[in-house]
Write a protein that binds this DNA or RNA. Sequence first.
DNA 1: AATGAATGAGAGTTCATTCAT
DNA 2: AATGAATGAACTCTCATTCAT
Lengths: 201, 201, 201, 201
Amino acid sequence: MVTQPVKEDRRQELVRAAYNQIAERGFEGLRTREVAAEVGLNIATLHYYFPTKEALIRGVVEHAMGRFRTTLAPHGSPADQLRNHLRAVRKLLREEPQLGTVLGELNLRSARDPAIAGIMRQTYDGWHQTLRGLLRRAVKEGHLRPDIDSDEVAALVVAALTAMTLPTLSSSPRTDQALRQLERWLGIAAPRQKRSNYPSK
Amino acid sequence: MVTQPVKEDRRQELVRAAYNQIAERGFEGLRTREVAAEVGLNIATLHYYFPTKEALIRGVVEHAMGRFRTTLAPHGSPADQLRNHLRAVRKLLREEPQLGTVLGELNLRSARDPAIAGIMRQTYDGWHQTLRGLLRRAVKEGHLRPDIDSDEVAALVVAALTAMTLPTLSSSPRTDQALRQLERWLGIAAPRQKRSNYPSK
Amino acid sequence: MVTQPVKEDRRQELVRAAYNQIAERGFEGLRTREVAAEVGLNIATLHYYFPTKEALIRGVVEHAMGRFRTTLAPHGSPADQLRNHLRAVRKLLREEPQLGTVLGELNLRSARDPAIAGIMRQTYDGWHQTLRGLLRRAVKEGHLRPDIDSDEVAALVVAALTAMTLPTLSSSPRTDQALRQLERWLGIAAPRQKRSNYPSK
Amino acid sequence: MVTQPVKEDRRQELVRAAYNQIAERGFEGLRTREVAAEVGLNIATLHYYFPTKEALIRGVVEHAMGRFRTTLAPHGSPADQLRNHLRAVRKLLREEPQLGTVLGELNLRSARDPAIAGIMRQTYDGWHQTLRGLLRRAVKEGHLRPDIDSDEVAALVVAALTAMTLPTLSSSPRTDQALRQLERWLGIAAPRQKRSNYPSK
DNA sequence: AATGAATGAGAGTTCATTCAT
DNA sequence: AATGAATGAACTCTCATTCAT
């Protein structure tokens, strides 16, 4: 009853250390020895908790997707939820920049690793569907322009948020601009200065 | 007249082989021996052309950015150019899926490699500015809604197209959906189904 | 009580194996794989004890200088000590011919490797000073001719003994002759043949 | 009639370049490519003149021994010749420090390379015999103390001069001291200041 | 007489993994 | 639950040598 949690802690420590390593050096630079050292353990001990490097990576995948899912907890009206979601994602990525990198790495790795691909597709699918649902309800409740194809817009939102993940884009101020434009089009932008709401064509 | 091209050919062959390897296995799985073998050369010969692995990678970066730049060649009205550009990018990524992967890999690597970061930022900056210019002119010529902030929209386009790069997104039909939505918002969507509702120039 | 020595043993084994390799094939022919094999270890294990080849070499330098220092342990009158020292060196080099070669190799390498140069200069300086001290005291006690410049003679002794190190000289009987002549000039020669013409103390 | 000398020139250039390389980096660091480059030639061309690296090294051995032999050209009385010889060697080694290093390297290499060993032994034998001859005649003519064993003294001179070769010793002022002491013992020291000639025992 | 291109054989080093303790 | 020691396999890079031109 005490050992189990302790063991879980060690595992979590290792996963988190690996997560940080991937963020810092990519999969290319992920070294089990480094991970173990960061936790203050011998490599042999790492292998006690995770039989192979791959097992450790799977742990990281789940950890990363978990971090990400937190932004989807919904409260308020659909339009509010949408706005809040976009904000939550931006905030999360700003406050924990490693997450973006790791997500990018996982994204690329999923092309070669079906296990990762599965987990990620699942998460992205869930995300897409949640967004689509929000959009539909927002339209139905009159908070959003009716000419919107909720499926396509959901896809666009996912794409835009995902792109924020990549270093070249995320390090420039443009990503924020892109999201602002998106919000404006959707009509959920928080009123800034005197910039008018969109006048539909 | 023959010698120069021959040498250039070998170098190009090696770069292309490396490019393919990166697309297939990522930087993580890039092996100089494999690259050389794919061209039918000994590793020592690879090192004859590229003193180090890094030098080879720099060759790949330039090659990849070069492929990418081809989509920016402009003809016609700004609106046409925009439409054509989006299409060209989609087509390129569809026909040469490796490019997306390599771009993604480079993107991530640029976080750790200033040399790559420099080249990529330059390319992306150029891209962004070209788009912004097109948008501005399209607005001025009345082909686009005037309420558009060309800077923000350019950023959104770049983000959306870039996201297409990532396996998880690019392998789903959603990316196309996202771009379609974008075109529709911009008012440059090509006729869908019954050549319906967009005002062609 | 057992673990520490065991580790030290492995390191020592590796150093000694490297020492032998250098004696046999010179730095030119020193191969870490060979060294490891001679101890019955995998190369990776060698790198477990010595991170780099250079680290191993530093180990060899210290080992060699250590062997050499043993000849400087002094007992008896200064004249006796001098005589014994010359003899000890000759004996050591005769019984462990590798030492001469390794010393020669280190000597040459010290021209390119400041770390080695430092260690060797230190040892040689100590040697020179010890000899000078012995000579001075021997003169003062009347065992040696008073017209001797102890500094210069010490230098000559060091030079002569060092030259014994080099294969071309050490393999001929001349080196012994040279030292005998030196002893005779100093007046510390041991009785040759019919216990003849030197004035014992 | 023109080609031969030209060819000889190229060969000499290569030998001299190799000689310098050995002096700078030792056999350990001798690279044929570097040698060729220093002469402004392609490696393939080096192999046109010297089929193998070993052949080039043999060229260096002969070159080095040649440089060395120049000090043995004798004029004047035996005592003068001796004095001049010692001086010539010191001067040569001071003015062309590479020679010492190369000699040292060759000395060590001769332990593993019979071909080199042969050439060197020959040269050293000649040297020893020349010195012995000079010493004998000097004694006979009354210029040297009669209690000298010319064989042993010759050996000592050779040893002392050879030791000058080694970096650790040659870089200190002691080597000169050693030779001065030797000259004083022999009684061929040039009168310096008011230092008396040796008072024989 | 000279070279560009190519290579086989290795060099030192790295790393995930194993195992006795 | 933890570790020191050990390893196989692989990696990038080097170098003397060859050969067609």
